[in-house]
Amino acid sequence: MPHPGWAHFSFDGIGTSWEISTPSRLSGEHRRGLLATVERYDAAWSRFRADSLVADAARSPGRLELPAEAAALGDLYGTLYRLTEGAMTPLIGSSLEQLGYDARYTLRPSGRPLPAPRWEDVLDWQGAVLTNTVPVVIDVGAAGKGQLADLLSAQLRDGGYAEHFIDASGDLLNPGPEPVEVALEHPYDPTQAIGTIRFGAGALCASAANRRAWADGFHHVLDGTTGAPVRTVVASWVMAETAMVADALATALFFVDGPRLEKEFDFDWLTAYSDGHAEFSTGFEGALFS
């Protein structure tokens, strides 16, 4: 554990496991408050729930008023949609469903890969308001878990728990300033590591093709322009100031190289490619095993 002796609060939320560590045990009231935040986020953004807010967009055209965090999420997705030339998109949900990653978790493709609809053709995202001109399946999984970690961290600080550590199934948020050393999971063998990294105040998030894989070589990182899984990159890691940005950029690295993203974002990164080589920023130098 990154902080021996701390108390730990573990739970499941938005389809993954969470652990929040604090120097002293969280009160029952604080725990209930955190779980309520997770539930509110899931009720707004989950494409796996028929009663979620975004589920309305999948049923019919219309106008959605989403929680305040939608504004930052939309701005980030808009930037990365532009930088990846449409490959990274919040409209990837229909493409995932086509390949079997649907609400029933059938994990059986129902046809050939389906490109996502072009954002500019079907969706207007202004602040916390989304207007869709046709039914669309919105999926913000590339940044949503990170944003929820940031929201929970802010809630902990407001509740008097300035010191804490959040582990969202391997995506980590450390308000710092004490550095934490963690292992970087091998993209082909989760029991092994390819290196270690120390990070202080900020977030460390990863994306890997092996985390959600099924059928004959399918995984959850799809290119929105083709609807097919990315084959050139197998894993990525990002250190950034917020978990939302780190989470999103870890996915963006599957489509755009690190130096291109560095022109618009302040972060450190490592990308592992399917041909066996890796590229990384100076913040990751010395962390990889030989």
Rank of each mutant, 00 (worst) to 15 (best):
R211T: 10
H220I: 05
Y81Q: 09
V238C: 06
D150C: 01
E262F: 06
R40T: 15
S10T: 14
V233M: 05
F165V: 03
E241H: 11
P115R: 04
G144L: 05
R198C: 13
R118L: 12
S153W: 00
F9K: 03
V256N: 09
G144A: 12
A208Q: 09
V140W: 05
V136T: 02
S10F: 11
V256F: 09
Y105T: 13
G200W: 01
E241R: 11
I20R: 03
I92Q: 03
L91T: 01
V233I: 13
T133M: 10
A252Q: 01
A252Y: 04
P175V: 09
S10E: 13
A58E: 02
E185R: 05
G93T: 07
A203K: 00
L130M: 14
S27Y: 10
L114P: 00
Y161N: 12
T251E: 07
H164I: 07
V122D: 00
G93S: 09
M88K: 02
R212L: 11
S94N: 10
A252E: 09
Y77S: 00
G111K: 04
S52P: 05
A193S: 15
G78Y: 03
P117M: 02
P113K: 06
G224D: 00
R31Y: 04
G15C: 07
G62C: 04
V134F: 12
T191P: 08
R118M: 12
D12V: 14
R157S: 13
G5F: 09
V245Y: 06
L91M: 03
A154E: 15
L172T: 02
L151G: 08
G33M: 10
N132L: 00
L130I: 13
H219Q: 11
P23D: 04
L35A: 09
V122A: 02
D167G: 05
A208F: 02
Y188C: 12
F254T: 04
N132C: 12
V38S: 00
V233A: 02
S46H: 04
I14C: 10
R118A: 14
G217T: 11
M239Q: 15
D257I: 08
L99C: 09
L253T: 03
D223A: 11
E120M: 08
D42S: 14
E178R: 15
A70N: 06
R212V: 12
L204C: 05
N174Y: 01
G160W: 00
D167W: 01
A44M: 02
D42N: 14
E185S: 07
G283I: 04
F255I: 07
A278T: 15
W119P: 00
L288M: 08
E264Y: 13
D102N: 14
V134M: 14
S290E: 15
L222G: 05
A71H: 02
T242N: 03
A240S: 08
S207Y: 04
L96N: 01
P109C: 07
A87V: 08
M239G: 09
A209R: 10
L26P: 01
S290N: 15
W119C: 08
G74M: 01
L99S: 05
R198A: 15
T131G: 10
P187C: 04
E264P: 11
Y105S: 13
P4C: 08
T89W: 01
T196Y: 11
Q147K: 12
T232L: 12
Q98D: 08
E39I: 14
I138E: 03
M1F: 14
T191Y: 11
S46I: 09
